[in-house]
């Protein structure tokens, strides 16, 4: 048993980590200062992990090609899509569940998934995260 333990320990030391690293090793005392440091290039952060192919990230909406058929609004489970007066749709990113039903049903392919996933808002209808506001 002890030999196995030692063997496992040595193997663990040499192996690549299974988990993904955090952006920074320790939580900074002050988030704003840290952010400024990053912008100035004084603090390096671990880049986010790579996304798999076919990842369902933030949507991209092509307003021009949209014909205003409202099908996407009907199949959206979380009411993230709202039909506007100009006969286009508005998309609230913070409400979206990334199910992709709008992408599937749209006859003109106006919706598309992107690889972007770093997005969060403090409320359900967060103003800063709206497509076609």
């Amino acid at each position: 048993m002890p030999t196995q333990t030692i063997y496992t320990l040595i193997k663990q030391l040499l192996k690549k980590k299974t988990t993904n690293p955090f952006p920074v090793k320790y939580t900074p005392d002050n988030m704003h200062d840290a952010q400024e440091l990053i912008e100035e290039g004084k603090l390096e952060i671990n880049p986010p992990v790579e996304v798999p192919p076919g990842f369902r990230g933030k949507l991209k909406y092509d307003k021009e090609s949209c014909i205003g058929c409202q099908l996407c609004v009907k199949v959206c489970p979380s009411e993230a899509l709202v039909f506007t007066e100009e006969r286009k749709v508005r998309h609230y990113v913070t409400r979206c569940t990334f199910c992709g039903q709008c992408v599937d049903i749209c006859p003109t392919d106006s919706f598309e998934f992107t690889d972007e996933f770093l997005m969060a808002g403090p409320e359900k209808l967060y103003d800063d995260l709206v497509l076609n506001p």
Binding site: K74, V75, C76, P77, S78, T97, C99, Q101, I105
Partner: peptide, 10 residues
Amino acid sequence: HRNPMEVIPL
């Protein structure tokens, strides 16, 4: 209170 398409993700 939702149509079947909306219920799949739910």
